[in-house]
Design a binder for these strands. Structure first.
Length: 110
DNA sequence: AAACTGACTAATA
DNA sequence: CTATTAGCCAGTT
């Protein structure tokens, strides 16, 4: 099974980037991976969030795939909840469930 | 140590 | 935009 996120590992960097996403913004898995120093570790980002406990204070719902859509997990209701959280932050979700990355994509500031 | 798994992305059609 | 194929990294077994 998945290791606890409290366990020191490569995921630590990923969690740090996710926490950096400001309110009302979203970031792609690849973006988080790149910021964490793993330009090809997009899958690891998803895997890290998969192991993330519900009591985590990380804004995991601000992490979407490269199309701005919410990736569906084994438990389908999680994706639905994620969309609600994003809408609550003022994001407009398209009919296909994609956010407007042109507008909401987070760009880390220098 | 090797194989399997997976909230992904890029390339191609 | 979608569908399919291949490559990638780290964790689990």
């Amino acid at each position: 099974m998945a290791a606890d996120p409290r366990t020191p590992s490569a995921w630590a960097a990923i969690y740090a980037q996710v926490q950096r996403i400001p309110y009302g913004r979203v970031a792609t898995y690849g973006q988080i991976a790149a910021l964490a120093g793993k330009p090809r570790g997009a899958r690891q980002v998803g895997y890290a969030l998969y192991a993330l406990p519900v009591d985590s204070s990380l804004p995991w719902h601000r992490v979407v795939n490269h199309r701005g859509a919410i990736s569906q997990r084994a438990e389908s209701d999680a994706a639905e909840e994620q969309q609600l959280l994003l809408e609550a932050e003022g994001l407009n979700i398209g009919d296909n469930g994609c956010v407007d990355l042109r507008r909401y994509r987070w760009t880390p500031e220098p």
